[in-house]
């Protein structure tokens, strides 16, 4: 008998493994891409920021390049009392999260609201920005969206940080990424 080359088997292996990749990677990506993000998803995305572990900006995981979550109780511009709201503060140079870089991943409705009402498109990492999770209407339904408060309310990162007490600032991921992933946020003051 001739030396076996397994040509058919090799092709079948390629088809089987390729088919598996298509079902478990490509097809879910289409479904996930087409679904709108939830409010929880926006909060997590904005509070965690771009880096979720080792990165060039923070090779020793010291919390560099991470946004701050700040609970605002007074309007940073006017000083008037407002209902407490969580703002996600990206000081200049802090890389924006995927949700801001590529709003298309948020789903059609949330992406449209974030772009039109939220004006996320005008935010730049070099200048920094303050983001909020707001709610708005799109074709008769209410959806959460990302609001670039630096553009819509003139809230700069510096003004927000100056107006809030240290106890209202939380720095997610400062040296304890794994714990933070379990939901145990580290206070900004402690870090």
């Amino acid at each position: 008998m001739a030396f076996r080359e397994y040509k058919i088997g090799t092709r079948m292996f390629g088809i089987a493994l390729g088919g598996s990749m298509m079902i478990t990677l490509y097809m879910p990506s289409l479904t996930i891409y087409s679904v709108g993000v939830t409010e929880t998803g926006l909060v997590k995305g904005l509070s965690y920021g771009h880096n979720s572990g080792f990165s060039y900006e923070d090779p020793f995981l010291q919390g560099k390049g991470k946004p701050l979550t700040v609970t605002i109780k007074k309007d940073p511009v006017t000083g008037a009392d407002i209902d407490p709201v969580d703002a996600y503060v990206y000081v200049p140079g802090t890389p924006f999260p995927s949700a801001v870089r590529n709003p298309g991943i948020l789903g059609t409705e949330v992406a449209a609201l974030s772009a039109d009402d939220g004006q996320v498109g005008v935010a730049t990492s070099d200048e920094g920005a303050v983001f909020l999770v707001s709610r708005g209407d799109y074709e008769g339904e209410t959806f959460p969206y990302i609001e670039n408060a630096s553009a819509t309310r003139d809230w700069t990162a510096a003004a927000v940080l100056a107006s809030a007490a240290d106890t209202d600032k939380r720095h997610v991921g400062s040296g304890k990424t794994m714990f933070v992933r379990e939901g145990c946020e580290v206070s900004y003051a402690a870090s």
Binding site: L17, S52, S55
Partner: peptide, 28 residues
């Protein structure tokens, strides 16, 4: 197959993928 798995499974790190995509690829 291991080489494919390592290459694809680390996509969230190469491209800073987060959220559900990151969770799914981690467990994939």
């Amino acid at each position: 197959m291991l080489m494919i798995v390592v290459l694809v499974g680390n996509l969230p790190e190469y491209f800073s993928l987060t959220g559900l995509t990151e969770a799914y690829l981690t467990w994939w």
